[in-house]
Every structure is written in structure tokens, then in C-alpha cells.
Simulated scan of single mutants.
Amino acid sequence: MEKEFTTTSPDETIVKGRAFIDALSIGDVVCLEGELGAGKTHFVKGMAEGFGIDGNEVSSPTFTLINEYYGDKTLYHFDCYRMESPREALEIGAEEYFYGEGVTVIEWPERILELIPPHAIWISIEAPDKNTRKFVIRKRDF
């Protein structure tokens, strides 16, 4: 399964994130791959809005590692950018979130690859120019 789409503004990325949640259920894990500034957090803002959470509350949890947002569904937002090893994720209870009562979205998932559940949905984001973002959604085969 693979699906692609392109956005041309942060607002459009948010709209796509909002629509994306229609395909999600409690217990789903979404992994976002992309360079700094690729649009990962804008996409998460849209996901949050889709769950009835104020998108303005969403920020990249680079220094806190995990943000929890409560709306129609709970959204667990991880940022693994500063993690040195998967052990750090285990120490903060990552696996409890992955199999918890919400939807988990992970920025920089490659830093904790061995902990990612096999059912995770992977979204790679490329920025071919200043405004354009290309998204590829897939299940990853390990």
C-alpha cells in the first residue's frame, strides 16, 4: 500500500493532516520521516485539529520528547530527534504509548527503529523547494 500527495503551503499541509486522521484508529502509530523544516509538525497540527484539539497547542516536543493532546481521541506526539538510543525511549515508557489508548505520531522514528510496532504507518516528507512538500504514505516492510 502506498499513497502520495503534494502540498504547496503550511496551511495545505495542515488540511491534509486533518483529513488523514479519518483513516486512523486507537492504537495506530504514525512515523514521520523528513529533514528539519519538511513539515512534520504542520502535519501533526492538522491531525490534532482532526481530533478536536486546537492546532495552536501543538508544537514539536524536541525538548520534552512527548506531548499528549486530548480531544475526541488522544494524540501522543513524540520527537526522537535528540534521543541517543532506543533505550531512552524505553525509559520514558514509549511502548506503553504505542499500545495505549490513543494515536501515536513519531517524528524522527529512525532513531528508535527497533521499537516501532510492525503495524506502524510510515510517511516520508520531502521538500523539493521552499513551498512544496511531497508526502508518501506506506506500510514499511522490515
Rank of each mutant, 00 (worst) to 15 (best):
W108Q: 02
E84F: 10
D54A: 12
I121R: 07
V105T: 15
S60Q: 07
F78L: 07
P61T: 12
S124A: 09
T104R: 03
F51C: 04
H42C: 15
T62R: 09
Y69W: 07
L75A: 05
H77T: 11
F78G: 09
W108C: 00
Y81F: 10
R82K: 11
E110T: 01
D79W: 00
V105Y: 01
L115V: 06
E84D: 13
G93I: 01
Y99E: 05
G100N: 14
F51L: 08
E114W: 08
K73Y: 14
A120L: 13
E91W: 05
E96F: 05
I53S: 14
E88P: 01
E101T: 07
D54Q: 07
G46D: 08
I112R: 12
L113E: 15
F51H: 02
E126D: 13
A89I: 10
W108D: 00
W122V: 08
R111D: 01
V44E: 02
L115W: 13
F78E: 05
E110R: 06
E101M: 04
A89N: 05
M47I: 08
R111M: 10
A94S: 11
P61Q: 10
P118S: 15
L90T: 05
D72K: 12
W108G: 03
G102A: 07
F78P: 06
W108I: 00
I121C: 07
H119S: 10
N67T: 02
N56C: 12
I92P: 02
T74K: 15
F63Y: 15
F43T: 06
E101W: 03
E49R: 14
I106R: 01
W122G: 08
E95N: 11
T41Q: 07
R82F: 00
R87K: 15
S85Y: 11
T74H: 08
E88D: 12
Y76D: 10
I106F: 04
P109S: 06
T104P: 00
F43S: 13
E68F: 03
I121F: 03
L75E: 02
E101V: 02
S59M: 13
C80Q: 09
Y99W: 07
